[in-house]
Design a protein around this nucleic acid. Sequence first.
DNA 1: GATGGTATGTAATACTATAACATCCCTTGT
DNA 2: ACAAGGGATGTTATAGTATTACATACCATC
Lengths: 171, 171
Amino acid sequence: MTAEFSRRTEALLNRAEAICGHRGANLTELRRHVLGMILDAASPTGAYDLLDRLRQTRRGAAPPTVYRTLEFLLEQGLIHRVERLSAFVGCIAGCTADPDGESHTHAAQFLICRTCGRVVEMQDHDVSSVLARAAKDAGFIISTATIEAEGLCSTCRSVPSARGRGNRMAS
Amino acid sequence: MTAEFSRRTEALLNRAEAICGHRGANLTELRRHVLGMILDAASPTGAYDLLDRLRQTRRGAAPPTVYRTLEFLLEQGLIHRVERLSAFVGCIAGCTADPDGESHTHAAQFLICRTCGRVVEMQDHDVSSVLARAAKDAGFIISTATIEAEGLCSTCRSVPSARGRGNRMAS
DNA sequence: GATGGTATGTAATACTATAACATCCCTTGT
DNA sequence: ACAAGGGATGTTATAGTATTACATACCATC
Protein backbone atom coordinates (compact mmCIF):
# COMPACT_ATOMS: atom_id res chain seq x y z
CA MET A 1 0.00 0.00 0.00
CA THR A 2 1.54 3.23 -1.16
CA ALA A 3 1.01 6.26 1.08
CA GLU A 4 -0.88 9.16 -0.35
CA PHE A 5 0.92 12.42 -0.70
CA SER A 6 -0.01 15.81 -2.03
CA ARG A 7 -0.35 16.15 -5.75
CA ARG A 8 2.84 18.19 -5.85
CA THR A 9 4.75 15.53 -3.95
CA GLU A 10 3.47 12.77 -6.19
CA ALA A 11 4.63 14.73 -9.21
CA LEU A 12 8.08 15.16 -7.70
CA LEU A 13 8.21 11.48 -6.83
CA ASN A 14 7.43 10.50 -10.37
CA ARG A 15 10.10 12.83 -11.57
CA ALA A 16 12.60 11.40 -9.08
CA GLU A 17 11.72 7.90 -10.14
CA ALA A 18 12.41 8.74 -13.75
CA ILE A 19 15.71 10.35 -12.81
CA CYS A 20 16.78 7.30 -10.84
CA GLY A 21 15.74 5.06 -13.69
CA HIS A 22 17.97 6.93 -16.11
CA ARG A 23 20.86 6.52 -13.72
CA GLY A 24 20.36 2.84 -13.12
CA ALA A 25 19.38 3.52 -9.54
CA ASN A 26 16.33 1.91 -8.06
CA LEU A 27 13.78 4.08 -6.30
CA THR A 28 12.05 1.23 -4.50
CA GLU A 29 8.72 1.51 -2.74
CA LEU A 30 10.47 2.02 0.58
CA ARG A 31 12.69 4.76 -0.79
CA ARG A 32 9.81 6.38 -2.56
CA HIS A 33 7.77 6.31 0.60
CA VAL A 34 10.51 7.95 2.68
CA LEU A 35 11.22 10.55 0.03
CA GLY A 36 7.53 11.29 -0.14
CA MET A 37 7.30 11.85 3.60
CA ILE A 38 10.24 14.24 3.43
CA LEU A 39 8.93 16.16 0.43
CA ASP A 40 5.48 16.40 1.94
CA ALA A 41 6.62 17.87 5.24
CA ALA A 42 6.52 21.59 5.95
CA SER A 43 9.79 21.43 7.90
CA PRO A 44 12.84 19.21 8.03
CA THR A 45 12.07 15.76 9.31
CA GLY A 46 14.17 13.73 11.74
CA ALA A 47 15.17 10.13 11.12
CA TYR A 48 13.15 8.82 14.03
CA ASP A 49 10.08 10.79 12.99
CA LEU A 50 10.33 9.05 9.65
CA LEU A 51 10.81 5.74 11.41
CA ASP A 52 7.72 6.17 13.55
CA ARG A 53 5.60 6.95 10.57
CA LEU A 54 7.12 4.18 8.52
CA ARG A 55 6.18 1.70 11.22
CA GLN A 56 2.52 2.45 10.77
CA THR A 57 2.58 0.48 7.56
CA ARG A 58 5.85 -1.43 7.72
CA ARG A 59 6.14 -3.80 10.61
CA GLY A 60 9.86 -4.52 10.61
CA ALA A 61 11.11 -0.96 10.20
CA ALA A 62 14.15 -0.19 12.37
CA PRO A 63 16.80 2.53 12.47
CA PRO A 64 18.93 0.96 9.72
CA THR A 65 15.89 0.86 7.47
CA VAL A 66 15.65 4.61 7.67
CA TYR A 67 19.32 5.47 7.67
CA ARG A 68 20.06 3.29 4.67
CA THR A 69 17.23 4.86 2.80
CA LEU A 70 18.40 8.35 3.70
CA GLU A 71 21.89 7.46 2.55
CA PHE A 72 20.55 6.44 -0.83
CA LEU A 73 18.49 9.59 -1.20
CA LEU A 74 21.45 11.75 -0.20
CA GLU A 75 23.69 10.02 -2.74
CA GLN A 76 21.11 10.65 -5.44
CA GLY A 77 20.92 14.30 -4.49
CA LEU A 78 17.19 13.96 -3.79
CA ILE A 79 17.43 15.22 -0.22
CA HIS A 80 19.75 17.27 1.97
CA ARG A 81 20.72 16.86 5.57
CA VAL A 82 20.36 19.97 7.74
CA GLU A 83 23.20 19.60 10.23
CA ARG A 84 21.89 22.03 12.77
CA LEU A 85 18.64 20.15 13.07
CA SER A 86 19.86 16.60 12.46
CA ALA A 87 17.02 16.47 10.01
CA PHE A 88 16.33 16.07 6.34
CA VAL A 89 14.68 18.14 3.64
CA GLY A 90 13.88 17.44 0.04
CA CYS A 91 15.97 18.94 -2.71
CA ILE A 92 13.71 20.30 -5.40
CA ALA A 93 16.62 20.80 -7.76
CA GLY A 94 17.59 17.18 -7.22
CA CYS A 95 14.06 15.94 -7.76
CA THR A 96 13.66 17.86 -11.00
CA ALA A 97 17.13 17.50 -12.40
CA ASP A 98 18.01 16.57 -15.94
CA PRO A 99 17.51 12.80 -16.08
CA ASP A 100 20.66 12.42 -18.14
CA GLY A 101 22.75 14.29 -15.61
CA GLU A 102 24.98 12.69 -13.02
CA SER A 103 23.73 12.11 -9.54
CA HIS A 104 25.40 14.72 -7.43
CA THR A 105 24.95 16.79 -4.33
CA HIS A 106 24.01 20.37 -4.96
CA ALA A 107 25.78 23.32 -3.40
CA ALA A 108 22.97 24.64 -1.30
CA GLN A 109 22.43 27.10 1.50
CA PHE A 110 19.70 26.83 4.07
CA LEU A 111 17.79 29.55 5.82
CA ILE A 112 16.19 28.25 9.00
CA CYS A 113 13.49 30.38 10.58
CA ARG A 114 13.74 30.45 14.36
CA THR A 115 10.09 31.24 14.72
CA CYS A 116 8.27 28.90 12.39
CA GLY A 117 10.99 26.28 11.93
CA ARG A 118 10.63 26.27 8.20
CA VAL A 119 13.67 25.94 6.03
CA VAL A 120 14.26 27.65 2.72
CA GLU A 121 16.85 26.31 0.35
CA MET A 122 18.92 28.72 -1.71
CA GLN A 123 21.33 27.79 -4.43
CA ASP A 124 23.18 31.06 -4.67
CA HIS A 125 26.24 30.80 -6.81
CA ASP A 126 27.88 33.92 -5.40
CA VAL A 127 27.84 32.49 -1.91
CA SER A 128 29.49 29.28 -3.04
CA SER A 129 32.09 31.00 -5.15
CA VAL A 130 33.07 33.58 -2.55
CA LEU A 131 33.52 30.81 -0.02
CA ALA A 132 35.53 28.72 -2.47
CA ARG A 133 37.68 31.72 -3.20
CA ALA A 134 38.34 32.51 0.45
CA ALA A 135 39.18 28.89 1.13
CA LYS A 136 41.54 28.78 -1.81
CA ASP A 137 43.33 31.83 -0.46
CA ALA A 138 43.88 29.78 2.68
CA GLY A 139 45.31 26.95 0.57
CA PHE A 140 42.21 24.82 0.88
CA ILE A 141 40.27 23.05 -1.87
CA ILE A 142 36.61 22.57 -1.00
CA SER A 143 34.73 19.40 -1.87
CA THR A 144 31.45 20.12 -0.15
CA ALA A 145 30.19 22.92 2.04
CA THR A 146 27.51 23.17 4.68
CA ILE A 147 25.96 26.61 4.86
CA GLU A 148 23.09 27.03 7.27
CA ALA A 149 21.80 30.34 8.55
CA GLU A 150 19.39 30.82 11.38
CA GLY A 151 17.15 33.85 11.63
CA LEU A 152 13.76 35.25 10.81
CA CYS A 153 11.83 34.61 7.61
CA SER A 154 9.79 37.28 5.88
CA THR A 155 6.48 35.77 6.95
CA CYS A 156 7.37 35.66 10.63
CA ARG A 157 8.80 39.13 10.42
CA SER A 158 5.50 40.55 9.25
CA VAL A 159 3.48 38.46 11.72
CA PRO A 160 5.22 39.05 15.05
CA SER A 161 2.75 36.86 16.92
CA ALA A 162 4.49 33.68 15.99
CA ARG A 163 2.26 30.84 15.10
CA GLY A 164 4.24 27.73 15.16
CA ARG A 165 3.19 25.07 12.71
CA GLY A 166 6.20 22.81 12.51
CA ASN A 167 7.99 24.92 15.03
CA ARG A 168 11.23 23.37 16.20
CA MET A 169 12.90 26.30 17.80
CA ALA A 170 10.63 28.76 19.54
CA SER A 171 12.65 30.91 21.89
CA MET B 1 46.12 20.07 40.28
CA THR B 2 46.02 22.05 37.07
CA ALA B 3 46.81 20.18 33.88
CA GLU B 4 49.86 21.23 31.96
CA PHE B 5 49.35 22.57 28.51
CA SER B 6 51.61 23.94 25.83
CA ARG B 7 53.09 27.35 26.44
CA ARG B 8 50.88 28.78 23.72
CA THR B 9 47.77 27.30 25.32
CA GLU B 10 48.71 28.60 28.74
CA ALA B 11 49.12 32.06 27.27
CA LEU B 12 45.68 31.88 25.66
CA LEU B 13 44.18 30.61 28.89
CA ASN B 14 45.58 33.54 30.80
CA ARG B 15 44.21 35.87 28.19
CA ALA B 16 40.82 34.18 28.34
CA GLU B 17 40.81 34.42 32.11
CA ALA B 18 41.48 38.13 31.95
CA ILE B 19 38.72 38.58 29.37
CA CYS B 20 36.24 36.71 31.53
CA GLY B 21 37.27 38.73 34.55
CA HIS B 22 36.52 41.98 32.74
CA ARG B 23 33.11 40.66 31.85
CA GLY B 24 32.23 39.47 35.32
CA ALA B 25 32.33 35.88 34.14
CA ASN B 26 34.15 33.26 36.13
CA LEU B 27 36.65 31.04 34.34
CA THR B 28 36.83 28.41 37.06
CA GLU B 29 39.44 25.70 37.22
CA LEU B 30 37.07 23.23 35.55
CA ARG B 31 36.30 25.62 32.72
CA ARG B 32 39.93 26.53 32.33
CA HIS B 33 40.85 22.87 32.20
CA VAL B 34 38.30 22.07 29.50
CA LEU B 35 39.22 25.13 27.47
CA GLY B 36 42.86 24.12 27.76
CA MET B 37 42.17 20.64 26.42
CA ILE B 38 40.31 22.09 23.48
CA LEU B 39 42.94 24.71 22.68
CA ASP B 40 45.72 22.17 23.00
CA ALA B 41 44.20 19.68 20.58
CA ALA B 42 45.25 19.47 16.95
CA SER B 43 41.70 18.71 15.83
CA PRO B 44 38.20 19.34 17.10
CA THR B 45 37.43 17.43 20.26
CA GLY B 46 34.21 15.63 21.09
CA ALA B 47 32.36 16.08 24.36
CA TYR B 48 32.94 12.50 25.44
CA ASP B 49 36.63 12.69 24.60
CA LEU B 50 36.81 15.65 26.92
CA LEU B 51 34.84 13.74 29.52
CA ASP B 52 37.16 10.74 29.42
CA ARG B 53 40.19 12.91 29.89
CA LEU B 54 38.53 14.97 32.56
CA ARG B 55 37.83 11.81 34.53
CA GLN B 56 41.50 11.08 34.85
CA THR B 57 41.73 13.84 37.41
CA ARG B 58 38.14 14.53 38.36
CA ARG B 59 36.32 11.63 39.88
CA GLY B 60 32.72 12.82 39.61
CA ALA B 61 32.80 14.07 36.04
CA ALA B 62 29.69 13.19 34.05
CA PRO B 63 28.14 14.35 30.79
CA PRO B 64 26.47 17.41 32.32
CA THR B 65 29.83 18.48 33.72
CA VAL B 66 31.19 18.71 30.20
CA TYR B 67 28.13 20.06 28.45
CA ARG B 68 27.62 22.82 31.00
CA THR B 69 31.21 23.82 30.67
CA LEU B 70 31.00 23.84 26.88
CA GLU B 71 27.87 25.96 27.10
CA PHE B 72 29.72 28.53 29.15
CA LEU B 73 32.69 28.58 26.79
CA LEU B 74 30.40 28.94 23.78
CA GLU B 75 28.55 31.83 25.41
CA GLN B 76 31.83 33.57 26.09
CA GLY B 77 32.90 33.09 22.48
CA LEU B 78 35.96 31.15 23.59
CA ILE B 79 35.13 28.07 21.55
CA HIS B 80 33.05 27.07 18.54
CA ARG B 81 31.03 23.99 17.84
CA VAL B 82 31.70 22.26 14.52
CA GLU B 83 28.34 20.86 13.56
CA ARG B 84 29.55 18.35 11.03
CA LEU B 85 31.78 16.72 13.60
CA SER B 86 29.72 17.26 16.77
CA ALA B 87 32.98 18.55 18.17
CA PHE B 88 34.52 21.70 19.55
CA VAL B 89 37.44 23.92 18.63
CA GLY B 90 39.00 26.91 20.31
CA CYS B 91 38.33 30.38 18.97
CA ILE B 92 41.56 32.31 18.86
CA ALA B 93 39.74 35.54 18.18
CA GLY B 94 37.58 34.91 21.23
CA CYS B 95 40.54 34.05 23.43
CA THR B 96 42.42 37.18 22.44
CA ALA B 97 39.54 39.62 22.20
CA ASP B 98 39.45 43.09 23.64
CA PRO B 99 38.75 42.57 27.34
CA ASP B 100 36.34 45.49 27.36
CA GLY B 101 34.32 44.07 24.48
CA GLU B 102 31.08 42.21 24.84
CA SER B 103 31.07 38.45 24.93
CA HIS B 104 29.77 37.39 21.58
CA THR B 105 29.93 34.62 19.03
CA HIS B 106 32.09 35.35 16.04
CA ALA B 107 30.98 34.87 12.46
CA ALA B 108 33.37 32.15 11.48
CA GLN B 109 33.86 29.68 8.67
CA PHE B 110 35.54 26.33 9.08
CA LEU B 111 37.65 24.40 6.65
CA ILE B 112 37.80 20.72 7.59
CA CYS B 113 40.50 18.62 5.98
CA ARG B 114 39.26 15.19 5.00
CA THR B 115 42.70 13.72 5.17
CA CYS B 116 44.23 14.97 8.39
CA GLY B 117 41.04 15.99 10.18
CA ARG B 118 42.41 19.36 11.12
CA VAL B 119 40.18 22.37 11.07
CA VAL B 120 41.11 25.90 10.07
CA GLU B 121 38.97 28.79 11.17
CA MET B 122 38.46 31.70 8.83
CA GLN B 123 36.72 34.94 9.65
CA ASP B 124 36.18 36.18 6.14
CA HIS B 125 33.91 39.16 6.03
CA ASP B 126 33.08 38.80 2.35
CA VAL B 127 31.70 35.33 2.90
CA SER B 128 29.45 36.53 5.70
CA SER B 129 28.25 39.57 3.85
CA VAL B 130 27.53 37.82 0.58
CA LEU B 131 25.50 35.25 2.49
CA ALA B 132 23.67 37.94 4.43
CA ARG B 133 22.90 39.72 1.19
CA ALA B 134 21.60 36.60 -0.55
CA ALA B 135 19.44 35.80 2.47
CA LYS B 136 18.07 39.31 2.56
CA ASP B 137 17.10 39.04 -1.09
CA ALA B 138 15.07 36.02 -0.03
CA GLY B 139 13.42 38.10 2.71
CA PHE B 140 15.40 36.50 5.47
CA ILE B 141 17.31 38.21 8.28
CA ILE B 142 20.22 36.13 9.54
CA SER B 143 21.09 35.90 13.23
CA THR B 144 23.84 33.32 13.07
CA ALA B 145 25.30 31.21 10.31
CA THR B 146 27.09 27.90 10.24
CA ILE B 147 29.59 27.64 7.40
CA GLU B 148 31.64 24.49 7.25
CA ALA B 149 33.55 23.27 4.23
CA GLU B 150 35.12 19.88 3.77
CA GLY B 151 38.06 19.31 1.49
CA LEU B 152 41.80 19.13 1.30
CA CYS B 153 44.22 21.38 3.16
CA SER B 154 47.43 22.65 1.61
CA THR B 155 49.63 20.36 3.67
CA CYS B 156 47.76 17.22 2.71
CA ARG B 157 47.66 18.33 -0.89
CA SER B 158 51.43 18.48 -1.05
CA VAL B 159 51.89 15.24 0.89
CA PRO B 160 49.57 12.78 -0.84
CA SER B 161 50.59 9.95 1.46
CA ALA B 162 48.17 10.92 4.15
CA ARG B 163 49.46 10.70 7.64
CA GLY B 164 46.59 10.85 10.01
CA ARG B 165 47.39 12.51 13.27
CA GLY B 166 43.99 13.36 14.71
CA ASN B 167 42.33 11.95 11.65
CA ARG B 168 38.59 11.70 11.97
CA MET B 169 37.62 11.17 8.40
CA ALA B 170 39.96 9.08 6.36
CA SER B 171 38.18 7.81 3.28
C1' DG C 1 19.25 -24.49 -9.90
C1' DA C 2 23.65 -22.23 -8.73
C1' DT C 3 25.70 -17.73 -8.51
C1' DG C 4 26.00 -13.01 -7.42
C1' DG C 5 24.20 -8.62 -6.45
C1' DT C 6 21.02 -5.39 -4.45
C1' DA C 7 17.76 -4.51 -0.94
C1' DT C 8 15.81 -5.30 3.37
C1' DG C 9 15.14 -7.51 8.15
C1' DT C 10 16.76 -7.94 12.88
C1' DA C 11 19.29 -7.38 17.22
C1' DA C 12 22.42 -5.13 19.65
C1' DT C 13 25.13 -1.28 20.73
C1' DA C 14 27.64 3.19 20.31
C1' DC C 15 27.60 7.98 20.41
C1' DT C 16 25.65 12.62 21.54
C1' DA C 17 22.88 15.46 24.61
C1' DT C 18 19.54 16.90 28.20
C1' DA C 19 16.36 16.74 32.40
C1' DA C 20 15.75 16.92 37.09
C1' DC C 21 17.11 17.31 41.47
C1' DA C 22 20.84 17.52 45.23
C1' DT C 23 24.82 19.62 47.22
C1' DC C 24 28.49 22.77 47.95
C1' DC C 25 30.47 27.10 48.53
C1' DC C 26 30.86 31.87 48.53
C1' DT C 27 29.00 36.57 49.12
C1' DT C 28 26.45 39.83 51.34
C1' DG C 29 23.24 41.95 54.47
C1' DT C 30 21.85 41.91 59.26
C1' DA D 1 27.65 34.43 63.64
C1' DC D 2 24.18 33.24 60.48
C1' DA D 3 20.41 33.28 57.13
C1' DA D 4 19.39 34.03 52.36
C1' DG D 5 20.47 33.85 47.67
C1' DG D 6 23.05 32.71 43.70
C1' DG D 7 26.41 30.48 41.00
C1' DA D 8 28.85 26.22 40.20
C1' DT D 9 29.15 21.48 40.39
C1' DG D 10 27.66 16.58 41.63
C1' DT D 11 24.62 12.70 40.63
C1' DT D 12 21.25 9.73 38.49
C1' DA D 13 18.53 8.79 34.89
C1' DT D 14 16.94 9.14 30.35
C1' DA D 15 16.24 11.03 25.60
C1' DG D 16 17.73 11.41 20.95
C1' DT D 17 20.75 10.23 16.96
C1' DA D 18 23.42 6.82 14.38
C1' DT D 19 26.11 2.58 13.30
C1' DT D 20 27.78 -2.38 13.35
C1' DA D 21 27.19 -6.94 12.23
C1' DC D 22 24.97 -10.56 10.61
C1' DA D 23 20.76 -12.90 8.50
C1' DT D 24 17.38 -13.22 4.92
C1' DA D 25 14.82 -12.28 0.70
C1' DC D 26 14.44 -11.28 -3.95
C1' DC D 27 15.76 -11.00 -8.56
C1' DA D 28 18.57 -11.48 -12.79
C1' DT D 29 20.99 -14.37 -15.64
C1' DC D 30 23.81 -17.95 -16.92
